[in-house]
């Protein structure tokens, strides 16, 4: 079998000198104000940064984004996102169970006090959805990246399929740089997938001309909560 053949070949090929894994990583940059560094970086790549660290500004930020994107229907990663970021909401359905589904909401009156419907994942009317909202588990100041995990009911595909993606991240979830991020990361422990996102989808495959929004969203908005 291939497995044994390959392993046998590798074992029989000689060793040069023994090389140890380096014990420490080279230095990575650190910042006095990680949130500010994050803002600079994400804006540099065409992302939108909104500061909602003051509790009363969150509703304003969120409703502003939803209104600006002209969304009639948008989808939330799950009910936990409201509690985590203290977003006022009331449910249409009896109970907000999002075990295997999404929460969608109708954007009626520029307010985020919204009626929420629970939909099974497969029943989503994708073309009608303009905005998806989810929360990040981490934000990396060095690169302006946010990290989503499927462990917190995050979808693998919604952040890509929907034209405008909005991510909420708590200011306590910021790390300085990617060394700090990967240093504490245990991928696969709680989830099957994580994704680092930095700005909207892009390509430069035709004549090296930058185009925003190829397979993924045209916009990425990050809202930092307190």
């Amino acid at each position: 079998m291939s497995r044994e053949t390959i392993l046998a070949r590798l074992r029989s090929s000689g060793r040069s000198e023994s090389i140890d894994l380096p014990e420490t990583l080279p230095d990575f940059p650190a910042y006095d104000d990680p949130v500010e560094q994050f803002r600079v970086e994400i804006e540099r790549v065409g992302g939108v940064f909104l500061d909602a660290r003051r509790a009363d500004s969150l509703v304003e930020c969120l409703s502003g984004v939803l209104a600006q994107r002209g969304a009639e229907q948008f989808v939330w990663e799950g009910s936990a996102v409201f509690e985590r970021h203290q977003i006022p909401v009331r449910y249409l359905a009896e109970q907000a169970s999002t075990e295997h589904g999404f929460l969608t909401s109708m954007h009626a009156d520029s307010s985020v006090s919204l009626p929420i419907e629970v939909l099974p994942a497969g029943d989503l009317d994708l073309p009608a959805v303009q905005v998806s909202v989810s929360s990040a588990v981490c934000a990396i100041a060095e690169t302006g990246s946010i990290v989503e995990s499927t462990a917190v009911a995050g979808s693998r595909v919604l952040p890509i399929l929907v034209p405008h993606h909005v991510v909420l991240v708590s200011s306590s979830d910021f790390v300085q740089n990617s060394a700090e991020f990967f240093g504490q990361l245990e991928p696969g422990k709680r989830e099957s997938a994580q994704i680092l996102m930095t700005g909207p989808s892009r390509t430069a495959d035709i004549e090296k001309t930058l185009i925003i929004g190829v397979h993924g969203p045209q916009s990425l908005t990050v809202i930092v909560t307190g």
Partner: peptide
């Protein structure tokens, strides 16, 4: 500095 997406995939759903 970084690409738009970096996927970390640890198995099926």
């Amino acid at each position: 500095k970084v690409t738009s997406y970096i996927n970390l995939i640890s198995g099926p759903r």
